[in-house]
Simulated assay, not measured.
Amino acid sequence: MYSAFEIRRALANPVRISLECNRLFYRRGYRRAYNTSGVDVFAEDWDSLILLDACRYDLFERHSRLPGDLEARESRGSGTAEFLRGNVAGRDLLDTVYVTANPQLYRYREELDATFHDVIHVWMEDGWDEEYGTVLPETTTRYALEAAERYPNKRLFVHYLQPHYPFVGSETTFDKGHVQDPEQGQDVFWLRLTDGRLDVPRETVWDAYADNLELVLPYAESLMDAFEGRTVVTSDHGNLFDERAFPIPMRVWGHPKGIHVENLIKVPWLVHETGRRKEIVAEDPVSEGRTVGEDVMEDRLEALGYV
């Protein structure tokens, strides 16, 4: 079940062991692949769905001025891969076009085995910003508007990376790049905050996170203005900021997969309607889509802290 490297890494950092024990609790010893009590987003009624990656409910409630009716929903995951596993795995989604800045669908494409009408991987070479190590919201917006024009009779699923780090435009350095440890491999800064190797005030991290949400909100609103029908704004998961995880009591930063405490799975669900509803039609996939080398994918994943 665990590789030799994973065992060595856990022994070198007991925090990983505690996280894994909590994960085993919520996943019932890995009998559950995701949070089964979370909302099935594709069973919900919408024409367009805008996803803000790693946006917890209270942050959105405090900062969003987007039009519509807001409520809280429970996500099927505390990480993007788990969210996708709970919502798209093995599904026929031929009525949907997925415009995504996040590489996780591509990374797990064989395991997830989801069939969309089309998938537009914005994060591939022409959509990736090398300076910031992410996909900027204006780029995702451009691809989403092009997809809406090209596919007027499809549900449109638009996946922004923000407010997920890196914190674009912020002067913070802790979220830029990652530490390579000979025993533990790459350590994303969330883990170093959790185990105490990195000491940054909570307010500093929270403010950078909030600024990243403020960055993306105007672009989300521009899509809401452009899209007709029923548009939902939501997130795949939340984020912890030195908050308690259970059943082993420990303070955690970030969004470790499989740990289903409130601020990791409580997400916004904002519904806005304007104009006429779409006439949605399911059709065969348009193509197999673009591919990239494994090295390109790994570089993108590393920049976002996924490896």
Rank of each mutant, 00 (worst) to 15 (best):
V179P: 04
V179D: 07
Q180P: 05
Q180A: 14
Q180M: 14
D181A: 09
P182V: 09
E183S: 14
E183C: 13
Q186C: 10
D187M: 15
V188S: 11
F189E: 08
W190G: 06
G196R: 08
G196Y: 07
L198K: 14
D199Y: 09
D199A: 15
V200N: 10
P201G: 08
P201Q: 10
T204Q: 14
W206K: 11
D207R: 13
D207W: 07
A208L: 14
A210H: 06
A210K: 09
D211K: 14
D211W: 10
L213K: 09
E214R: 15
L217K: 04
Y219I: 00
Y219E: 01
A220H: 01
A220C: 02
E221G: 01
E221V: 00
E221C: 00
S222Q: 02
M224I: 00
M224T: 00
M224Q: 00
M224K: 00
D225M: 00
F227M: 05
F227K: 01
G229Y: 03
V232S: 07
V233C: 01
V233W: 02
S235P: 06
H237T: 04
G238M: 03
R244G: 07
A245D: 04
P247E: 14
I248L: 15
P249T: 09
M250T: 08
R251F: 06
W253A: 10
H255T: 12
P256T: 07
G258A: 14
G258H: 14
H260N: 03
E262Q: 03
N263W: 05
I265F: 02
I265L: 03
K266H: 10
K266N: 13
W269D: 06
L270V: 01
V271Y: 05
H272N: 01
T274K: 07
T274L: 01
R276G: 09
R276T: 10
